[in-house]
Simulated assay, not measured.
Amino acid sequence: MAPTPPLITAYLEHRAFLLRLLTARTGSAAEAEDIVQEMYERLATLPDGGEGVENVPAFLNRMAMNLAFDRQRSGSRAAARDGEWLSANALVDGPEPIAEAPTAEDVVGGRQELRQLRDAIDALPPQGKRVFEMHKLQGRPHAEIATSLGISRSAVEKHMAAAMKNLLKRLGRRLE
C-alpha cells in the first residue's frame, strides 16, 4: 500500500480547523463542508501529491479561502444573471416575482367563456356564421370573403355587424 501523500495527511490533521474557518467565512456549515470535500478531491488528484509545498498549513488555508471566494463569486454571478433574466422576463411586484401561469380558476373560467363563445357562434344563422368565422377566425378581409361567397362587400359587413350584435347579446355584453 502506497504511503499517504503529505498534503492529504496535513489536510486530515487540519480538517476541523478548515471547517471552522470556512463556516465563519461563508456563514454556512453545509457550504463549508462542501468546500472541504472539494479540497480533498483536488488534493487527492495532485500529480506529485504536493511534494513541493513548503508551508503546508498556509497552502491549505489559501486553498480553502480561494475555493470559498470562487463559490461566492459564482453565486454572485448566478444571482445577477437570474435577476437580469427575471427583470426581462417576469412581472415583479415587491420582493417576489409574480407567476405568469394562470390560476386553476382562471383556466376553468377561460374554458367556460370559450365554450359559451363557441355555442354563441354555433347559434348564428348559417351565412352569418360562415362570414364571422372567415373574418374573425381565419383573418380574411371583407373583400375576399365577398368574392369567395359570391355576395357583395356590403353584405359581408352587414353579416359581420349582425353576428357581432348577436354574440354580444348572447354573451351578456353591451355594445360599446
Results as ranks from 00 to 15, higher is better:
139 G>H: 07
113 E>S: 13
58 A>E: 06
98 I>A: 08
41 E>V: 07
139 G>M: 08
98 I>W: 04
76 S>Y: 12
152 S>A: 13
127 Q>P: 01
37 Q>D: 07
109 G>A: 14
20 R>H: 11
64 A>P: 01
31 E>K: 08
18 L>K: 04
64 A>T: 00
41 E>H: 10
128 G>N: 09
83 G>R: 09
141 P>K: 08
47 P>G: 08
22 L>W: 01
54 E>P: 00
25 R>N: 05
62 R>H: 06
77 R>M: 10
41 E>C: 11
22 L>M: 05
59 F>Y: 15
109 G>E: 10
36 V>W: 01
34 D>N: 12
28 S>V: 00
52 G>I: 04
102 P>L: 10
130 R>H: 11
79 A>N: 05
101 A>P: 03
61 N>S: 06
15 R>V: 03
100 E>N: 08
23 T>E: 09
27 G>P: 03
21 L>P: 02
114 L>F: 12
139 G>Y: 03
22 L>P: 00
118 R>D: 10
38 E>W: 02
105 E>V: 08
127 Q>A: 11
88 A>C: 06
100 E>V: 07
154 S>G: 08
24 A>V: 07
110 G>H: 12
115 R>M: 09
23 T>Y: 02
139 G>F: 02
60 L>C: 06
53 V>M: 09
130 R>F: 01
93 D>Y: 10
85 W>N: 04
91 L>G: 01
158 K>A: 13
40 Y>I: 03
141 P>E: 09
31 E>A: 13
85 W>F: 12
146 A>I: 07
24 A>S: 14
93 D>A: 11
101 A>L: 14
78 A>M: 12
59 F>H: 11
149 L>Q: 03
104 A>P: 04
130 R>C: 09
82 D>V: 12
147 T>L: 12
104 A>C: 10
43 L>V: 02
17 F>Y: 15
38 E>N: 11
92 V>I: 15
93 D>M: 14
139 G>W: 06
117 L>R: 15
97 P>M: 08
35 I>C: 06
45 T>K: 15
33 E>C: 04
73 R>C: 02
133 E>C: 15
30 A>P: 00
106 D>H: 11
143 A>W: 02
86 L>N: 13
137 L>Q: 13
69 F>Y: 09
134 M>L: 15
25 R>Y: 08
70 D>Y: 03
95 P>M: 04
142 H>D: 14
113 E>L: 14
71 R>I: 00
85 W>G: 00
137 L>N: 13
80 A>D: 04
50 G>M: 09
